[in-house]
Nucleic acid binder design. Structure first.
Length: 104
DNA sequence: CAGGGGGCTAAGG
DNA sequence: GCCTTAGCCCCCT
């Protein structure tokens, strides 16, 4: 199935995002070779098992924000993990130009 | 097969 | 900077 390929390509791409860097849903999709599937990326991450090794926290939306509601446990977790990697978050925002990863 | 909804985006006010 | 709108494409009823 091509769908399976897409899924694997997307997971592979996300797992390649280096610590201290971030990537948007749209970019992940594009780098994975499936442009236009940003929402699909989000869908996959939502259904990710908690024990997964996929660095889901390094994927944010094009606004430079977490896609979780402000103050939610998931959002706090994400911010915690990102800060741990040296990413600075101001007013719930991350400067994309500074941390964006666009593949290797 | 149709409808609704999602960890989305780009564009416009 | 914020909010709204219109596309987007896959997935689950």
């Amino acid at each position: 199935m091509t769908n399976t390929h897409h899924r694997e390509a997307i997971f592979l791409t996300i797992s390649r995002i280096p610590p201290g860097k971030i990537c948007t849903y749209g970019h992940v999709a594009r780098i994975a070779g499936v442009p236009g599937h940003a929402r699909y990326v989000g869908h996959l991450l939502k259904n990710l098992p908690c024990n997964s090794a996929i660095p889901w926290h390094r994927v944010i939306n094009s606004q430079g924000r977490s896609s979780f509601p402000e103050g939610s446990p998931m959002q706090q977790e994400q911010h915690f993990l990102l800060k741990q990697e040296g990413i600075e978050i101001k007013k719930q925002r991350i400067p994309l130009s500074r941390y964006l990863w666009l593949g290797e």
